[in-house]
Nucleic acid binder design. Structure first.
Lengths: 235, 235
DNA sequence: TCAAAAGTGTTCCCGCTACACCCATGG
DNA sequence: CCATGGGTGTAGCGGGAACACTTTTGA
């Protein structure tokens, strides 16, 4: 009765903020995208899946998730990877039991990894038909990301090494799904010491405009920056 | 190489706010307690462990965790159970590989489950020597609980069905580890519609005093009550 | 000199904190 | 009538939202 032939797998929702380059004339807004590959074989051939795969005996789950992403979709520059929940329903997939540990992975704006032919970025706001319970994982990952944007420095993993505030604004808008005020974003993140000015400026675009001050994230490791919403300890 | 003989187990940190009844004269403050059992056999005989055990083929992890608690320590009245992270280091315990999915479980103040002889409640502020990586789990669980107390109604799972504000204050103080103001606790939770007055009052103790108004939690299911600390969407 | 982009300053509002004050009961 | 425990009123503060205004560039 105990573990007849259970497989442990990792599944990772890899997110990146991407410009979905429309044809010229189309407004090319930045959108939050998730990396998916299309199943060629049954079960559920044609549906889109999260990258992942079986856990090996000599690795832990985090290592395994990183390895799967490097081997199968050639993603080697994850700036952040964290565990989400475990999917353990005995009937979640047909065939032998698979317990899935799910992850949230983040790739910075500037990098553009080479993808295998069956793999593509999809806007999280218009997902294709997805395999098994994978769409739930994407939803969890998106929710977790949105929450952490407001009380941690997790955006470091979505932003380039240095950036103008307008770029950072785009990233926040894309990841949160609603508009954010550049002014207040700058002030909130500065007060919390999440971002630091580099002292340099970028030259303005072809349309002119004042040169933008460049910033960088103070830490390149996740850090909680606003611990308690209420019921703070007395000072 | 793939899954030679891996076992999947659940481990649950069960918390309850308890009065550690000192001798008369000792001030018997309420403290956050965790349920532990003492290992009789090696490995690590004598150290204290979290309740849990092997996952069966026909159950998911949540079901398994509930079953283990009912069978092994006779805890059948968990008001809340949620997943924490997975511990998957191949060497986390000696012998065959065990992957542990960890949980946070909460038991209300009033209930007092019968415990087996090797099982005992321990204050989370003075833990005994613990087995393997179990103390990390307790630490995670405590941190998660403290965080959720500030932005969800999770305290419903620690409180009796109805209670006076002074009781609820004790619960928050014990779980958070620092003092909370009764007045503001009442206002914050009332504004968020987390608690509802029942209309009844409790008779005062032997020392006299004004009768306390009784409250209950509005929901008996976890609910987020203060979504964003910053960067809220525009209205 | 004008438009576009970026940065600054100011005001307002809301929620949490702190603390003083008022109420009800038992001895 | 006083001690004890509960409840209410209110002022203050701090952080975030909104928005107008100034600065710097290219055409």
């Amino acid at each position: 009765m105990l573990h007849g032939s259970t497989i442990h797998e990792s599944l990772t929702a890899v997110f990146q903020v991407r410009h979905f380059d429309g044809r010229p004339g189309t407004d090319e807004r930045a959108e939050l995208a998730v990396l998916l590959w299309q199943r060629a074989l049954d079960p559920q051939a044609g549906t889109w899946s999260l990258p992942g795969g079986k856990l090996r005996d000599d690795e832990d789950l985090t290592t395994s998730a990183r390895r799967q992403l490097a081997e199968k979709v050639d993603v080697r520059n994850l700036a952040h990877l964290e565990q989400l929940s475990v999917f353990s329903d005995p009937c979640r997939v047909p065939g032998p039991r698979r317990i899935a540990s799910t992850f949230l992975g983040l790739v910075p704006l500037t990098t553009d990894p080479q993808l295998p032919p069956d793999t593509r970025w999809h806007s999280v706001w218009s997902l294709p038909e997805m395999s098994f319970d994978h769409s739930i994982v994407v939803e969890h990952a998106r929710t977790r990301l949105a929450a952490k944007l407001s009380y941690t420095n997790i955006a470091f993993a979505l932003a380039p090494p240095t950036f103008a505030m307008s770029t950072l604004r785009e990233i926040y808008c894309a990841a949160l799904g609603y508009d954010v005020d550049t002014t207040n974003l700058q002030r909130v993140l500065s007060r919390r010491k999440v971002i630091t000015p580099t002292g340099t400026t970028s030259s303005p675009g072809p349309a002119g405009g004042r040169p933008a001050a460049m910033y960088r994230f103070t830490d390149s490791q996740i850090r909680v920056t606003d611990e308690f919403a209420a019921l703070r300890p007395r000072v």
